[in-house]
Amino acid sequence: MPDQPSSARGAATHQRIIDAATQEFAQYGIAGARIERIIAAARTNKAQLYGYFGNKERLFDAIFFASLERITNVVPIDVEDLADWAVRLYDEYLARPD
Rank of each mutant, 00 (worst) to 15 (best):
M1D: 14
P2E: 04
Q4H: 10
P5G: 06
S6F: 05
S6M: 05
S6C: 03
R9M: 08
G10P: 03
T13I: 13
H14K: 09
Q15P: 07
D19F: 00
A21W: 00
A21Q: 01
A21H: 00
A21C: 00
T22K: 08
T22Y: 08
Q23I: 14
F25I: 02
A26D: 12
Q27H: 06
Q27I: 11
Y28V: 01
Y28P: 02
G29M: 03
G29L: 03
I30L: 08
I30V: 15
A31G: 04
A31H: 14
A31C: 11
A33C: 08
A33R: 00
A33W: 01
R34I: 04
I35V: 15
E36N: 13
E36M: 12
R37Q: 11
R37C: 06
R37A: 12
I38V: 02
A40C: 00
R43S: 11
R43L: 11
R43K: 15
T44N: 07
T44L: 09
T44W: 02
N45G: 14
Q48I: 05
L49I: 03
Y50R: 07
Y50C: 03
G51H: 06
G51M: 04
Y52W: 08
F53W: 03
G54R: 04
N55Y: 07
N55M: 03
K56A: 04
R58C: 05
F60Q: 01
F60M: 01
A62Q: 04
A62R: 05
I63D: 02
F64N: 09
F65S: 09
S67C: 04
S67K: 13
S67T: 11
S67M: 07
E69P: 04
R70C: 14
R70P: 07
I71H: 05
I71P: 05
T72Y: 06
T72V: 12
N73L: 10
V74G: 07
V75K: 00
V75C: 13
P76Y: 08
P76F: 02
P76E: 12
V79N: 10
V79K: 13
E80S: 08
D81L: 00
D81K: 01
W85L: 01
A86F: 14
Y90R: 15
D91A: 08
D91H: 08
E92N: 10
E92H: 09
Y93G: 04
Y93K: 09
L94W: 09
